[in-house]
Design a protein around this nucleic acid. Structure first.
Length: 350
DNA sequence: TATCCACAGGAACGTAGGGACG
DNA sequence: CGTCCCTACGTTCCTGTGGATA
């Protein structure tokens, strides 16, 4: 209608279709706008990667067709550039910020800048759609941002097993020949997805991988066994992928945890650091400070590779109890394939 | 019950690597 | 060129703290 657009806030756990629906709606809107000759643009960004105000603006510029370097310019310069370009386009621009909580955590300023951009714009308007799976996010938000960001709210509830079942049935009718899927396969996939907070993506991936396994095996039907197998394959692949792409220092810390776990039950930050230092000496790696290693341990925790729980041992001090949460075999496999660290495994004692 | 250990984790800063611009 | 600004990764210095023990 050409009126002032509201900012929208969308909640919902992973795999409930927030992103898919948002994208779908926006592209429909775009179609409509085009057919009526209305100016409409949108850009989508995932704040896991786009997590500074600078990057947000860079991304926005790219989306409306301005070339900017990914680094080098003063923020204000980019801001001006974008503002002018957008005003020239005389359009309505919708900015989708997926996983806004990440952006806010790392740079609360960016959201503020975005919300107040409208007052700087003359002929164009900008509207923000924030997507998050953190239900408490709104409470942690700065009041000034909160009021303008959450003018309207939409909640996506998790899919139930039945809904997942419908989705899978519908998809599989298109993707597979009749009778390929053994009875119960879809049920199992949707049940697993429902357990994962109603995650449709998980269910679909599971079904796809199970089918691939069956095909590779030359089996005629996809059975529940394939699904179980697929579960393991997916799990394993994601773990290995994450581990392999870790920076060398983080890997060294992981290795220290790995070796420490073999010896004692509860391994602490201090233990890890001790082993880590020895490893570094052996492979001629710079030894980082405890402070930094503490952060690396936290990073591993965030990635879900380990759990690090703060505990107090009274006069024994406060520390973190650290545990690996991924299979040891996979950790070893990845570490052994890293040429810089592999030789540690040839040494008997650390 | 006050103490005190072994860290947790915040703040500020340094260095290296990169690109824009005059 | 030098200057200005960005990011990534690390360091230094620091204050804070849960709870078993003296």
């Amino acid at each position: 209608r050409g009126g002032a657009p509201s900012n929208i806030f969308i909640y919902g756990t992973t795999g409930t279709g927030k992103t898919a629906v948002t994208k779908q709606v926006l592209s429909k809107l775009k179609e409509r706008a085009e057919s009526r000759d209305l100016a409409f643009k949108y850009s989508y960004m995932n704040c896991q990667h786009v997590d500074t105000k600078y990057r947000v603006l860079t991304q926005l510029c790219e989306d409306i067709g301005i070339d900017v370097p990914f680094t080098g310019l003063h923020f204000d310069v980019i801001y001006q550039k974008f503002k002018e370009a957008l005003d020239d386009l005389d359009t309505l621009h919708v900015t989708v910020l997926d996983e806004v909580d990440m952006l806010y955590k790392k740079s609360s300023e960016s959201l503020y800048v975005l919300t107040r951009m409208n007052s700087d714009l003359e002929s164009s308007k900008i509207s923000i759609i924030g997507i998050t799976n953190d239900v408490n996010f709104k409470e942690t938000l700065d009041p000034r941002i909160r009021s303008s960001l959450s003018e309207e709210e939409i909640v996506f509830s998790p899919y139930t097993a039945e809904q997942l079942n419908d989705i899978l049935t519908q998809r599989s009718d298109v993707a597979f020949h009749k009778g390929i899927l053994e009875f119960g396969v879809i049920n199992l996939c949707s049940a697993v997805g429902a357990q994962q907070h109603g995650d449709a993506r998980r269910s679909l991936d599971l079904l796809r991988v199970a089918a691939e396994l069956a095909e590779r095996n030359g089996d005629e039907k996809v059975t529940e066994i394939h699904v179980r197998k697929a579960q393991q394959v997916i799990e394993r692949n994601t773990v290995i992928e994450v581990l392999t792409s870790l920076p060398i220092q983080t890997k060294a810390v992981l290795q220290a945890i790995f070796m420490g776990e073999g010896k004692t039950e509860a391994i602490t930050t201090g233990d890890v650091y001790e082993i880590y230092s020895k490893i570094c000496k052996l492979v001629r790696l710079d030894i980082l400070t405890t402070r930094r290693v503490g952060d690396l341990i936290n990073e591993l925790d965030m990635l879900g590779i380990i759990t690090a729980q703060v505990i107090s041992k009274g006069r024994g001090g406060r520390s973190k109890r650290i545990h690996l949460t991924v299979p040891h075999r996979q950790v070893r496999e990845v570490l052994e394939s890293d040429f810089r660290l592999s030789k540690i495994f040839e040494v008997d004692s650390i």
